[in-house]
C-alpha cells in the first residue's frame, strides 16, 4: 500500500511537470506562429534518402549500435574522470590534514 502511494506521488510529479512543459511549449510556439504538422510533417519534408540523409526509422547495423554506445560511454567517462578524480583527491587531502589540538 505504501509503495502504491509512492508510485502515485512519482507519477503525479511526472504529470505536473509534463503539464507545465506542454503548456509552456504550446504557448511559446503559438505566439511565435511556428508551423504545426500532423504525422510529423512527412508530406512537407524533403526526400531524405535523395538528399544524402540516412533514415532514422530503419536503424543501423550492429556495428553502428556499438558505435553509438561507445560514443556516449566516452562522453560519460570523460565527465566522470573530470569530476570524480578531483573530488576524491580533495577528500583525501582534507583527510590527510592533521587536526591541531589546542
Amino acid at each position: 500500500m505504501k509503495t502504491v502511494g509512492r508510485v502515485l506521488i512519482i507519477l503525479i510529479a511526472f504529470a505536473i511537470m509534463m503539464g507545465i512543459t506542454y503548456s509552456i511549449v504550446g504557448a511559446s510556439s503559438s505566439s511565435n506562429n511556428m508551423p504545426v504538422f500532423q504525422n510529423g510533417g512527412e508530406r512537407f519534408s524533403p526526400n531524405r534518402e535523395q538528399h544524402g540523409f540516412r533514415d532514422e526509422s530503419r536503424g543501423g547495423s550492429g556495428f553502428g549500435m556499438l558505435f553509438g554506445l561507445v560514443k556516449n560511454s566516452v562522453i560519460v567517462t570523460m565527465i566522470v574522470v573530470l569530476v570524480a578524480l578531483p573530488k576524491n583527491f580533495l577528500q583525501q587531502k582534507r583527510r590527510a590534514v592533521p587536526v591541531r589540538i589546542k
Binding site: G59, G60, G68
Partner: peptide, 17 residues
C-alpha cells in the same frame, strides 16, 4: 544506464528500439 546509452543514439539503434 545501458538503456539510455543505446537510446541516446536513434540513428544507430533505430527509431522503434
Amino acid at each position: 544506464f545501458i538503456a539510455f546509452l543505446i537510446a541516446m543514439d536513434p540513428r544507430s539503434s533505430g527509431i522503434a528500439v
